[in-house]
Amino acid sequence: MKFINTRTVLAVLATISINACTPTENIDIHNDQAGAIMGLDYRDFHKASSEAISSMLQSGAVNKPDGTRYVLAISRIVNDTMQRIDTDQLIKKIRVELLNSGKVIVTTAVSLNKAEDSMAMHARKLRQSDEFKQNTVAQKGQMIAPDLSLSGKIIQRNLKIDSDKQQAEYYFQLSLSNINTGLAVWEGETVIGKRGSNQAVSW
């Protein structure tokens, strides 16, 4: 029993000393020139979202002829990679930039599964409550239906080059569809390829 305790203590001390040798540092995200990793990191999402935003703005697809804003709903963004990804890492950047552009506004009340923010619908239940001034409760027929829908997919392909090297390919594919017509008014793809050791993990 004493022997086990000594070993445990030694293991803990070794772990602490190893950690002490590798100081934690903040990443300078404005000038991060560190080497790439086989998996996807924030720089890859930055690249994919920037290319999508620039391409969308350049295409004129988000420019409403009457000068008002398009209302955009976020549809399904499929993560078809081996990694656990929250697709908002990609979509949020696009949403923020499209909103800031003044060309598009995103609805949080309409989505494929349930609304991103269900409060808009939930707050309407207050119409039945005598405790609330009814002229402060959201009125019927005020919500705005979406004009456009953004859908997409992130795909990963892993290829073995030789006994030492592997290649990981990532495809960020996005489509912007006109809900009225069902036609895709913009489509974009960003490919990110990485080559590295077979020891490196890409999932």
């Binding site: 404005h30 935003i53 620039s54 923020v96 800031n100």
Partner: peptide, 22 residues
Amino acid sequence: SKLTQWTEFPAFEKTDFRVKMI
């Protein structure tokens, strides 16, 4: 803007290159 970030582009040998920004 999220577009204000370092963005790579290629410059092939002995040729001109073009980069477009919006």
